[in-house]
């Protein structure tokens, strides 16, 4: 196994030398040092460890892999992970657009303070989010005492998972939509209304299509975040197999049972999904840059 790593490092060295020799442009110093260090660090911290996951999964035979990732329990976990993350991202797309719209277009007291607070989910540890949300929505909690009698149970249910994922993914759509809304020239809207478009038509025909790539990108980021979330969901979910057990939770369970192949196979599927979403986000960005201007 050490030989594999050594081989990897040697290949990396050869590629590096090729990179540096091909760059004859800039007279600025430090290319070989900075590139060499950053590629080495990236390989050691991220690339080699991630490849360990794929190599481990690759050591399983296809049938073994298939029986693990397509068992009833993993299927239930994947479908719960994808539906909750998707619903949360969808809710975030709607409320994120609303909040971005209000922050860009209207004036109100404490606007700067509210704007700063939007990023709280990125700064607050997810464990704290999980703790607070579970405490707020249980039957005796501040909000649960009103909601539970109404039949809305946001603790230890699927809805609880969706709701805490709404919290963790909240800033993404707001922050992708905000700058795009700010950049829309007032003239465009003015021209449309002079030409006889109603306010609603301006919104659906001009504003919405312009910000749509941004909403989509924020949606994908929130979705990716939701797929992998662990810290907050274990607090608010009862983590019952087949019912409220998410894929990341199942990975940890398998690890604690020392079932490494199972954990790795489930993780590989999750990784593949993450890569897919990352590629999707990049495509949107390239696409909106090409057609946006």
């Amino acid at each position: 196994m050490m030989a594999k790593i050594e081989f990897g490092i040697r290949v990396q060295g050869v590629i590096l030398v090729a990179f540096i020799q091909s760059n004859k442009g800039s007279p600025l110093p430090g290319l070989s040092l900075s590139l060499g260090y950053s590629v080495t660090y990236l390989s050691l911290i991220v690339l080699i460890p991630l490849s360990a996951c794929f190599i481990k999964a690759g050591s399983l035979s296809p049938t073994e892999f298939w029986t693990i990732v397509w068992s009833e329990r993993t299927r239930a976990a994947y479908s719960l992970t994808f539906t909750t993350a998707f619903l949360a991202a969808l809710i975030n797309a709607a409320i994120g657009f609303l909040v971005a719209w209000v922050l860009v277009r209207y004036e109100f007291p404490f606007k700067r303070f509210v704007d700063a607070m939007i990023d709280l989910p990125l700064a607050l540890p997810t464990a704290v989010a999980g703790l607070v949300y579970s405490s707020l929505y249980v039957e005796s909690g501040w909000l649960g005492q009103f909601l539970v009698p109404l039949g809305i149970n946001a603790a230890y249910t699927k809805f609880a998972i969706v709701w805490v994922l709404v919290f963790t993914g909240f800033p993404f759509v707001v922050r992708t939509v905000q700058p795009v809304l700010e950049e829309i020239e007032p003239e465009v809207e003015e021209a449309a209304s002079i030409l006889g478009a109603s306010r609603l038509q301006v919104f659906t025909r001009i504003l919405l299509p312009t910000v749509f790539p941004a909403i989509l990108s924020g949606f994908a980021q929130a979705f990716a975040r939701g797929l992998g979330e662990y810290g907050s969901v274990i607090f608010v979910s009862s983590n019952i197999p087949y019912k409220t057990e998410l894929a990341p939770v199942l990975i940890v369970t398998r690890l604690e049972e020392m079932a490494f192949p199972e954990a790795t196979a489930i993780a590989t599927v999750l990784l593949a999904a993450s890569f897919g979403i990352l590629a999707f986000i990049n495509t949107i960005e390239i696409w909106s840059k090409r057609f946006g201007k």
Partner: peptide, 13 residues
């Protein structure tokens, strides 16, 4: 984009 749980798992591997 990678789930934190997977990030931990790869180091266990």
């Amino acid at each position: 984009a990678v789930s934190p749980v997977v990030a931990g798992l790869v180091f266990v591997l």
